[in-house]
Amino acid sequence: MTTVRVGELHKRFGATVALDGLDLEIGVGVTGLLGPNGAGKTTLLRCLATALAPDHGRIEAYGLDPADSRQRTALRRRLGYLPQSPGLYPNFSAAALLGYVAVLKEIVDPRMRRAEVHRALEEVGLSDRANVKVRKLSGGMRQRLGVAQALLGHPDLIILDEPTVGLDPEQRMFFRTLISRLGETRTVLLSTHQTEDAGALCERVVVLREGRAVFDGAPRALAQLAEGQVWRSAGPPEGRTMYWRTAEGDYRTLGPQPPDGVAVPPSIEDGYLKLLGPAPAAGTIR
């Protein structure tokens, strides 16, 4: 079921084009945004979170248009948002911070608010840190607190800008469980730099480049873009730019078959690299 529609979205900051006529439809479940820095991920998320107005184009989320101030407020009632830099007040305790955001989310009754703060802390596993000041929390815990504030008030649309950044593997695991559970009933849109996160978490992946969607589909389909183009060989392949030495000591090549190459199944990262080409510094493949 489609819950969020974006059409012809444009946004520029001075001379920089962040979104260049983006079209996108997403629904209930977890959708991941991938793309290099500056591809427009954060700009798109900020527009959807009503923190930024697009220059032109349409946004409709749960039937609400954020360009209209009344509907924008209505949409905000159904929204949970973790920005890239949440800027959580360092001198607030975890619980006080959530209490503050809960008030911003119109949970005015103190009793209900306490219960809601309690629930959100529990959901991200921070119950025992409730009265620890934000500045004394580790990076991963702060990130969890950021997610907790997004979950206050049971939002239908959850927007998370790089929620897994700075997490250790154990916390990552915890997050994956949490986010996939959220995705059962709500629309979750998250951006990430980690292709393995996208593969593990998202039923759908959208790859952005230069403000446009260049891929939209299942993670498996993203991997399949590199089907028949991933090879393993004993030595470094000649004259190629997209290869690297693996942990097993052999070489993995993306592109045409090297002389001693054996075909291996592609990963999401392979598909992603195939789609976008190597980073500019590493030369070009096209």
């Binding site: 009503t50 905000r76 009632r77 929204l79 920005p83 955001v101 911003l104 989310k105 119109e106």
Partner: peptide, 8 residues
């Protein structure tokens, strides 16, 4: 950024 995305 968080504040501006809330109904208040």
């Amino acid at each position: 950024e968080i504040t501006s995305a809330t109904p208040m």
